[in-house]
Simulated scan of single mutants.
Amino acid sequence: MASASVVTAGPTFQLPFPCGETWVGNSKSRAHTAGNEIDFNGSAGDGNGDLGRTVVAAAAGTVVMSEYRTTDGFGNVVKIRHSDGSVTLYAHLNARSVAKGATVAQGQKIGTVGKTSEKYTMLAHLHYEQRTSSGSIVPATFNGVRFRYPNQTLTSKNCGGGERPTPTPTPTPPPSNGGNPYSGTEVCGAGFKQIDSATLGSAGRVVLLYSASSGQNCVVTLRNGTSGKAAMRAYLEVEGQARKTAQGSFQYYAGPVRAKAARTCIKWGGAIGSAKYDSPREHCD
């Protein structure tokens, strides 16, 4: 057996799972085009047993993509750009925990394992890639050692204390523009947890929450600027049902809009002024 090659340039990537967890990586999927992509499962042949397990950042960086994609079959996908320009990609996520533009630390939760895709039918797993700054998919390294293709079982050393994101200065808002005192959880109520979000330019964001106990989704649009009022909208459309919308002139938020959608596809979104977000058909599990 060839000895493992040690890599020292660039960030020291760690396994994209919490410290101490053991995962099986495999690169043999017929959907892989470069041969360096890795599909991770918690154990061989575990079916959908990994659905909803935590996915973390392999290294610190900036989120350059957090969206649901249809054309390439990635479904819910997050991309993170790192200090040397390299990129890591995390696909088929059941839920995304970070938005585009966010800075993340190594080991920070960015989503959960899923099986989302408009192109492929699959069991739950994490599709993972390491890419160069130009987009080429390269052999992955974890803890400075190249992954032993085509498959290898690894235990995560993503235990904190690694590379941290470069701090981004927090802009000082104008005196008349205090912070919004509300969060999505406060507006939707106890038991709701955020599972997705989308930015509305500099105006604010729209968030999607879910309550496991009630099987309800909830959508709220939140302003960044809170002086005066603005035209705002929040909506939720459960597949097979009429769209529910809250809109008007509000100071802090539009919504909440709630509907039961357990194991049912939805569309959701919102707007503040001319800035708007409309999701694709998603969150079907």
Rank of each mutant, 00 (worst) to 15 (best):
Q247F: 05
N224C: 01
S83I: 10
Y277F: 15
S3C: 00
A234S: 14
E118L: 09
I272L: 11
E21R: 09
V257S: 05
P175R: 12
V238F: 06
A254T: 12
G61I: 13
V77S: 06
T172M: 01
G35D: 12
Y90K: 06
T112W: 08
K229M: 10
R30Q: 13
V257I: 03
H125S: 09
I137H: 04
I110V: 07
V24R: 14
A57M: 06
A60T: 10
T153V: 14
I266M: 10
G201H: 09
E163N: 02
V220M: 02
T226G: 00
S274I: 08
S5R: 11
S5M: 00
S156E: 03
A234G: 09
A271S: 15
V206C: 01
L236F: 08
S249E: 13
S213D: 12
L89Q: 14
T121P: 03
E118Y: 12
N94I: 00
K229C: 08
Q241P: 04
A261I: 07
G20T: 12
G42C: 13
Q130W: 07
V63D: 05
F250I: 11
T199V: 01
Q106D: 03
F147M: 05
M122L: 14
S211I: 04
V138L: 12
T264A: 12
A4T: 09
I195V: 15
L208P: 03
S279A: 14
G61L: 08
R205Q: 02
F17K: 05
A58L: 02
S134L: 04
A34H: 10
N177P: 00
V55G: 01
S156L: 05
A254Y: 11
K229S: 15
T155C: 11
T88L: 00
A231S: 15
C284D: 03
N41A: 15
A203E: 13
K157H: 12
A231L: 11
P169C: 08
Y182R: 02
R258F: 02
G269A: 09
E118Q: 13
S133V: 00
K79Y: 13
A190N: 13
D39A: 04
N151C: 06
V145H: 03
S213H: 07
R148Q: 09
R223M: 07
N217K: 07
P175N: 05
R146T: 14
A246E: 12
A57F: 04
T245F: 05
A212S: 13
S117E: 01
T70R: 05
M122A: 08
G73E: 04
T264K: 15
Y235K: 07
A9H: 08
G269M: 10
N180P: 11
F13C: 04
R263P: 02
